[in-house]
Design a protein around this nucleic acid. Sequence first.
DNA 1: CGAGTAGTTGATGCCCGTCAAGGAGGGTGG
DNA 2: CCACCCTCCTTGACGGGCATCAACTACTCG
Lengths: 246, 246
Amino acid sequence: MMQECAVPPPDDDGDEYRFCSTCAFGSVCIAGDVDKTALRDLHCLVEHVGTFHAGDTIFRTGARFGAIYAVRTGTVKTRLIDLGGRELVLGFHLPGELIGLNAIEPEVYPCDAVALDEVEVCRFSFPALATLAARVPAIQRELFRRLSRDIGSAALLAGDYSADERLAAFLIGFSRRCAERGHPADTLRLAMSRGDVANYLRLAAETVSRVLRRFQDQGLIRVDARHVTIARPAQLFELARPILQR
Amino acid sequence: MMQECAVPPPDDDGDEYRFCSTCAFGSVCIAGDVDKTALRDLHCLVEHVGTFHAGDTIFRTGARFGAIYAVRTGTVKTRLIDLGGRELVLGFHLPGELIGLNAIEPEVYPCDAVALDEVEVCRFSFPALATLAARVPAIQRELFRRLSRDIGSAALLAGDYSADERLAAFLIGFSRRCAERGHPADTLRLAMSRGDVANYLRLAAETVSRVLRRFQDQGLIRVDARHVTIARPAQLFELARPILQR
DNA sequence: CGAGTAGTTGATGCCCGTCAAGGAGGGTGG
DNA sequence: CCACCCTCCTTGACGGGCATCAACTACTCG
């Protein structure tokens, strides 16, 4: 059922009992009640996929679904191209986040995953992962939680919010996710272009430019190309409240 | 682990090996490879919850998450109330569909589930269901698929589409779901108000009225209160294509 | 150095939300 | 049976937020 672990992973990727620090299944390892053979199976199952560079495709729309991926380093954008050729950005994914979960049901990837900078990912064969999940409750639980979370976050941007609210919520959300990864919450390094941000927020790129400018004039943030520092988090949060509330 | 099956379900709910016809786990039963004791466990696990009437609440925002529900009959609306007191409709759910999946991760229900007409649901204790899923691959698989599907559909309405596109996509989508349930695909009985539809599509109720009127003037549909008949499905689909494409 | 991309800023227009007024049931009590 | 009310729905007039178009700058890379 679970294949042999052919190639033992190199040392800097963690050992048999501890995964890479940004691992998507970190919480599984922390839980002490996981039996060690199961953990080793998970470790055998994962496959580190090489370095992607900005613009490289990790998986492509329509490809047969076989695995989900966890971002290890860098930033990944998921997007689809509509019939008119226009891009539609579904999300940005930071280290520790899973991509490809929306491919389970259609059994093909419904979107492209594109690297925005230098990206490394972990590949989890989904059939193997599902088999393991049946044996290890903590893994099953983690998968359910991740899937459930994505449903909620997808609905988040769906409301009819103003450009100000959207951008504020985006910045606050990004800031929080950076903080969760040990980066400072007030200095953001955006890996994506204005166009990508606009596209994700369902705004025009010009609108993003204008709103960022106004936020800066109001003293809420400071913008330097793709570096954004948040000067007044509380005020920014107040703007984003209608979206982030819950 | 799995509790005894105290009260055997009445005959019209199916027997030990076949569930109610609209059952959310119907595909599990159809697959022949499920061992019978596991199937009986699933049957023991499910709990039919009484008849709700229009406006009744099935679960409420903030309540501790303990179970997911499958709609058996009627139509359910999931919604949340934002801080300004405005309602935000997340979805409409027909027989056979699961609700509460977005509560797994936050561990409280992030929305209300409200009956729109006479509604019966099946209640699945989630801890018990997860335990069973670990033992029965087909059930785990079905859960993963349902979760995955909800991610995709949540992202569907998130684009910046015109009112025409949104309404056309809503009607086509609703028509398809009716057809899947054995109802005619061209005569729709909407259980929800115009306001609910508008709210779900992120439009004003007035806009929904106007667009429906125009669709009727163009001969695409016929509207009679909450009964809508689709006269030109192909043309309607053409309108909805930017949203439904994939 | 030239070219292409990303980003900014301004002018214009339109889609759709808002406000307002009226119409159409549907349930209740007299 | 009818008057009353309440909610749902429709239709019209108006205004605003944001997309679109366009021009210009800055930056990167071959």
